[in-house]
């Protein structure tokens, strides 16, 4: 709503350039307008949590107080930082590999129906198999290092990327393709100048899903067998009934997911300003 002023058709030629890039201050105000509701809700949840634990409605070994959780975060920052870094590293590597493999697979599938018919059922099968169930197998095969975690992150993030990219590549305006035929465009030119850029908004909606899933993938890998990473931290805390540490681990894990999501969203806005400015101003995906 607050962006509707940005997307109206320009009346005066001079206005076009300025309207395309609102000032930093204006953008900050808009961001604040967009985000105050979720922030308020989060604060409300936090207060509820604090009230529940302060009034001792629930035993403290079941739900630790916010203070106890914060103490853990402050007391053992090195410990948490070290394990967070491992999980982040696994997540990022898995995500990047999934993007490369996913995009290439999507392009090949869109351009060759033979490949699509061959690959698609296998992809679907790979998606249907519960990743949590095959995680132990990867550990058996690949050991306790980071490789099985990365592989699970790849597997779990791969599917939304392929699906969104295939959808994007297929969603290109058929008239645009006819037009490029009358221009004498080579398949490569059509791909580079029309199909690929047109598919990017779809791809990014898949990337946002994939990046949060990649965190889950890495943690699942750590649950099955690891001696480092946030999954390991949570498992250890669970074994010791150390709920404050468990909560701290969960918080950090969510934080990693949110930060990665926001990074993808910022990348989208930088790479596809034409798309971002078109969309109505909701923070989450508008699909």
């Amino acid at each position: 709503m607050s962006q509707s002023a940005v997307s109206t058709a320009p009346v005066k030629p001079a206005g076009v350039a300025e309207r395309a890039r609102p000032s930093l201050r204006r953008r900050t105000v808009e961001a604040a307008e967009k985000s105050w509701r979720p922030v308020a809700l989060l604060l409300a949840c936090f207060v509820a949590w604090w009230v529940i634990s302060a009034a001792e409605l629930v035993e403290s070994y079941l739900v630790p107080s916010p203070g106890a959780t914060l103490d853990v975060l402050l007391d053992k920052p090195d410990y948490l930082w070290q394990h967070s870094w491992v999980t982040t590293y696994e997540t990022l590597l898995g995500f990047v590999i999934a993007v490369v493999v996913g995009v290439v697979a999507a392009v090949v599938m869109v351009y060759s129906s033979t490949v699509e018919k061959t690959l698609y059922p296998i992809l679907l099968f790979a998606q249907v198999v519960p990743k949590i169930a095959i995680a132990p197998l990867f550990v058996v095969w690949l050991g306790f290092g980071i490789t099985p975690k990365i592989l699970i992150a790849v597997l779990i993030a791969f599917f939304p990327i392929v699906i969104s990219m295939v959808t994007g590549l297929k969603a290109v305006d058929p008239e645009m393709l006819q037009l490029s035929a009358t221009m004498g465009a080579s398949p490569w030119q059509t791909f580079l100048k029309i199909r690929f850029p047109a598919s990017l908004p779809h791809l990014f909606s898949g990337l946002k899903v994939a990046v949060t899933l990649a965190v889950t993938g890495a943690v699942v890998g750590e649950f099955v067998g690891a001696n480092e990473g946030l999954g390991y931290v949570i498992l250890q805390a669970n074994g010791n009934l150390d709920t404050p540490m468990l909560f701290a681990g969960l918080l950090v894990m969510s934080l990693i997911g949110v930060i990665l999501f926001v990074i993808v969203e910022i990348a989208e806005q930088l790479l596809l300003p034409w798309h971002a400015s078109r969309r109505d101003g909701s923070v989450t995906t508008s699909y």
């Binding site: 058709a9 320009p10 030629p13 001079a14 076009v16 309207r19 395309a20 034409w274 400015s277 078109r278």
Partner: peptide
């Protein structure tokens, strides 16, 4: 003229 740098969604249907 003057709309050279405008993106399509900033233009009216006629434009």
């Amino acid at each position: 003229e003057g709309f050279e740098e405008a993106l399509p969604h900033e233009l009216s249907g006629g434009m």
